[in-house]
């Protein structure tokens, strides 16, 4: 039996050589949104009753991406074969509402059905699309996680400051700060609504300079800002950005950056796709390094 194991083993080899600082990739980190990129599709809610109205929202990142843009998003819901099929355009800056036919499950003869949703936008001649599912069922439990805000922590000359950010806020910092940490705050939902939350931070290069932010993973500085034992990375609830280039060893990276936080809800265990947790929420703000 031929099995494609080489990719995994190759990953191991590159890891080994990566440890000795050789063979590293020069590609941008995945958390850097070099050009416009779809980061999330949020559907309220991931599990709905027949007859409910769901709203859909797309999140596109990009250093020149205006979240209030009214560019057209093409929403394609369902498939022709499944009996549920809608295709329409809606502005990017508004929620797209869709009413679920009340008798859909009876028509399909099923107790639940996963409905695929495709959202497409054309930016600079390039088509970006995203595929997401939501579930129509008789006993909806899963909910979208809810990001209530982002807490920003930064320190200058031993003085620790904290600011709570709301969606779309702009945080301005100057070069007296070496790094800034951000923590996503989520609401505790009823038991079973969320299971395992997966966090992803993204950011753009500067929109008005050549500056770049880097995730700063130095434990000492993380603990200095967020407390003993704290952890921060682009895949954790908290992340810390260096304002002075990679490893905080370069010049001050003056500029305007867009920062995005995505939370996805995963099942604790999932033996097939019907057990998937499909909840998503996102948050964005702007970091202005003066």
């Amino acid at each position: 039996m031929n099995t494609n194991r080489s990719a995994f083993a190759a990953a191991l080899v590159f890891f080994l050589f990566g440890l000795v600082s050789c063979g590293e990739s020069d590609l941008p980190e995945d958390y850097v949104s070099v050009s416009p990129k779809i980061l999330a599709v949020k559907i309220s809610d991931p599990e709905v009753l027949p007859g409910d109205t769901v709203t859909m929202r797309l999140l596109v990142s990009g250093k020149d991406m205006d979240q209030n843009s009214d560019m057209a998003v093409v929403w394609t819901v369902g498939t022709v074969e499944s009996g549920v099929y809608v295709q329409t355009e809606a502005p990017y800056n508004t929620d797209y509402p869709l009413e679920i036919p009340s008798g859909i499950l009876d028509v399909l003869g099923a107790s639940s059905v996963d409905v695929p949703v495709t959202a497409s936008v054309t930016i600079g001649g390039k088509v970006l699309s995203a595929l997401k599912r939501f579930r129509i069922c008789l006993e909806p439990i899963g909910k979208n996680p809810e990001i209530t805000g982002v807490q920003a922590d930064f320190m200058a000359e031993g003085e620790h400051q904290t600011v709570n950010l709301s969606q779309g806020d702009t945080l301005s910092l100057d070069n007296s700060y070496k790094a800034a940490a951000f923590t996503a705050m989520t609401t505790d939902l009823p038991e079973g609504a969320n299971q395992v939350l997966i966090y992803s931070w993204y950011m753009t290069p500067s929109s008005n300079s050549l500056g770049e932010l880097f995730v700063y993973d130095d434990k000492t500085n993380i603990e200095a800002l967020l407390g003993q034992g704290a952890m921060a990375a682009e895949f954790r609830p908290s992340v810390m950005f260096s304002l002075f280039g990679e490893d905080a060893e370069e010049k001050y990276q003056k500029g305007r950056y867009h920062v995005y936080m995505i939370v996805r809800d995963n099942a604790a265990t999932s033996s097939d796709s019907t057990e998937d947790r499909l909840g998503t929420d996102f948050f964005y703000f702007t970091l202005d390094l003066l």
């Binding site: 050009s35 990129k37 779809i38 980061l39 999330a40 599709v41 495709t118 390039k126 088509v127 970006l128 699309s129 995203a130 595929l131 997401k132 599912r133 997966i198 992803s200 996805r264 998937d276 499909l278 998503t280």
Partner: peptide
């Protein structure tokens, strides 16, 4: 490079089209 992509949100994967 720069081909159209589809982001598979639930699997967190970008698929080149």
């Amino acid at each position: 490079l720069n081909v159209n992509t589809r982001y598979d949100v639930d699997n967190d994967t970008y698929v080149p089209l």
